[in-house]
Design a protein around this nucleic acid. Structure first.
Length: 259
DNA sequence: ATGCCTCTGGGGCAGAGA
């Protein structure tokens, strides 16, 4: 079974790319983030024509997550257990479903903006709710994984130049501690292989030739329980999808399971 | 070195992204 995650930075703007990628990579399950679309405006027909069921969760201009599946889409949940709100609004950043016997969450972790910004505290609270959800749902006998844009670089090697991140989010101790808490809950960071260069970055800024210079970050992660991780046969970042005009600033991460 | 930012909503600018 092939499971993938991709921050598409607007499902509307990315629709031609999304359809082409589904046809070429042929994932059984695809987690999407940053839909920038309402649930109602999601292009269900175009995706269903390729044999996928759709569970989308979006409110419009920002955020939005979805799961597409060819192998069943059951027990859909929108939002986390005890999920915090931002400026008194619930944001569509997490959706869960069971697909082909695998429990899957597609997540778009808050950015945090700056360590001194209220959004950063929101990010840390949101990650606590993610852990609460993981603890509630991940059971030893069932493959389980959280896939998505975590907006955290797990190690210094996961950014192109750590010296540029002294005052930045994505690399702080508190953010990395939140990932450690998820690992303590039994999840493993399934690190993909790069198709080029020596490190599997998943995001490159649109500006300043970041992609051709390979000034990237590994922030799109797959956190899997033991049952899921034991089934992983291969995993890679599809950097080809980051090339050319009309692409997202994130590349898809693909995981192939043995069964 | 597959390329010098892109997206949306709303109204041609502003906010967000990381």
């Amino acid at each position: 079974m092939r499971i993938a995650t991709w921050n598409v930075n607007s499902v509307g703007a990315r629709l031609p790319r999304l359809v082409a990628w589904l046809e070429s990579a042929r994932p059984d399950v695809l987690c999407l983030q940053e839909l920038k679309s309402t649930t109602e405006a999601f292009p269900n027909a175009e995706v269903e024509a390729l044999g996928y069921e759709v569970a989308a969760y979006g409110t419009g201009r920002w955020n939005g997550v979805a799961i597409l599946s060819k192998v069943g889409l059951d027990d859909v949940k929108r939002g986390l257990v005890d999920e915090p709100r931002y400026e008194d609004a619930a944001e569509p950043r997490a959706i869960g479903a069971t697909c082909g016997g695998v429990r899957i969450w597609s997540v778009y972790v808050p950015n945090g903006r700056e360590p001194s910004h209220p959004h950063y505290e929101y990010k840390l609270r949101w990650l606590e709710a993610l852990n609460t959800t993981v603890v509630a749902e991940s059971v030893p006998g069932t493959p389980f994984a959280v896939l998505g844009d975590f907006n955290i670089a797990p190690t210094d090697a996961d950014v192109w130049d750590i010296s540029l991140f002294a005052e930045s989010t994505h690399v702080t101790d508190a953010e990395r501690k939140a990932l450690a808490v998820l690992r303590d809950a039994g999840l493993t960071d399934v690190v993909p292989r790069p198709l080029k260069y020596d490190h599997p970055y998943t995001y490159w800024d649109y500006r300043q030739l970041a992609f051709p210079k390979n000034n990237g970050m590994r922030i799109d992660l797959v956190y899997a329980n033991e049952k899921f991780a034991a089934e992983v046969e291969d995993s890679y970042v599809d950097r080809e999808e980051r090339k050319g005009k009309g692409g997202s600033d994130h590349a898809p991460v693909v995981v192939d399971l043995k069964a």
